[in-house]
């Protein structure tokens, strides 16, 4: 197996593609960390609050780790990534751009968005790029309970009657549409390159099918009919932002995540 020990040893195209992918994962995790934090409160049971708080901590830990890799191997400055990048350069999953409006949306984010990231990480377990391969198992181990939490609440909400079930369906489908855009079009060149160079084992479209299959199985078991087939349009899709339009994350969320209010406490 090819083993690539550092960012400098990657060829230029591959390095750019991997940098985009890792930044996009980190951006999404940053937003997940924010939303799980917000939903440490107002959950149906205290246990769910505590779980979300724990999930937030995991995601933010992963952001810190990914930023470390981007710094060591891709000449990125974590401070720039976090604090001074224009919001339109960020590549988080669109579903997380705004406050999650209700508990069903949190369940959808856990199940679909967090689930998609886990699949993306999983495809790098055997990565030729060692700095990623060496951390993926630990990350996946920490993600295990995220999936349990998403699935458990999907079942719980699906079983609570018509209204909860239809809200759940709506949120999960919206999250999935958003994730489909984030995966990108089938055969997208950067993704294809990462697969052919052994950085990832499976393409994003394969991962997308896997996610749809997993969701279909869960939904069927709970008697929920999900609209899973994507109708995503990709003209003008940008691999750096993983979007096509110029939508971007809510400024208020960024204000919080950047610690803008506490500027004087950013000590070096």
């Amino acid at each position: 197996m090819v083993e690539i020990a550092s960012g400098e040893s990657l060829n230029a195209a591959c390095r750019a593609a991997l940098k985009n992918l890792l930044s996009a994962i980190a951006d999404t995790k940053l937003l997940l960390g924010y939303h799980y934090g917000e939903w440490t409160f107002g959950t149906p049971v205290l246990e769910a609050s505590i779980a979300n708080c724990s999930l937030s901590q995991t995601e933010l830990g992963h952001v810190r780790l990914l930023h470390g890799i981007l710094k060591s191997h891709f000449d990125e400055d974590p401070e720039r990534l976090l604090e001074s990048r224009p919001p339109r350069e960020m590549a988080g999953v669109e579903f997380l751009d705004r406050e999650l409006p209700d508990w069903a949306a949190v369940v959808a984010a856990t199940l679909v968005v967090d689930g998609a990231l886990t699949l993306a990480l999983h495809s790098m377990r055997e990565s030729a790029f060692l700095p990623v391969r060496n951390v993926v198992d630990k990350m996946l181990e920490e993600e295990r309970y995220h999936a349990h939490h998403g699935r458990g609440w999907f079942r719980a909400l699906a079983g609570r009657g018509e209204a909860p079930r239809s809200t759940l369906k709506e949120r999960v489908e919206a999250a999935l549409r958003s994730v489909e855009i984030w995966w990108g079009p089938e055969g997208e060149p950067e993704d294809a390159l990462l697969v052919s160079e052994g950085i990832k084992s499976r393409s994003n479209s394969e991962l997308a099918s896997q996610l749809r299959r997993d969701l279909a199985e869960l939904a069927a078991a709970c008697g929920v009919e999900l609209e899973l087939e994507g109708t995503a349009q990709f003209d003008g899709w940008d691999p750096r932002t993983r979007r096509r339009g110029d939508s971007s994350v809510n400024e208020e969320i960024l204000y919080h995540m950047r610690g803008s209010k506490n500027q004087i406490f950013k000590l070096t």
Binding site: F41, H256, N262
Partner: peptide, 27 residues
């Protein structure tokens, strides 16, 4: 949490979110 939400750095954010987690666990 409302303070952690505006934490100055990612390390300090993680630290206070972990603290919130502990506190709720203690409750």
């Amino acid at each position: 949490y409302l303070a952690a939400r505006d934490a100055p750095t990612i390390n300090s954010r993680i630290a206070v979110i972990a603290i919130v987690h502990d506190e709720l666990g203690h409750a």
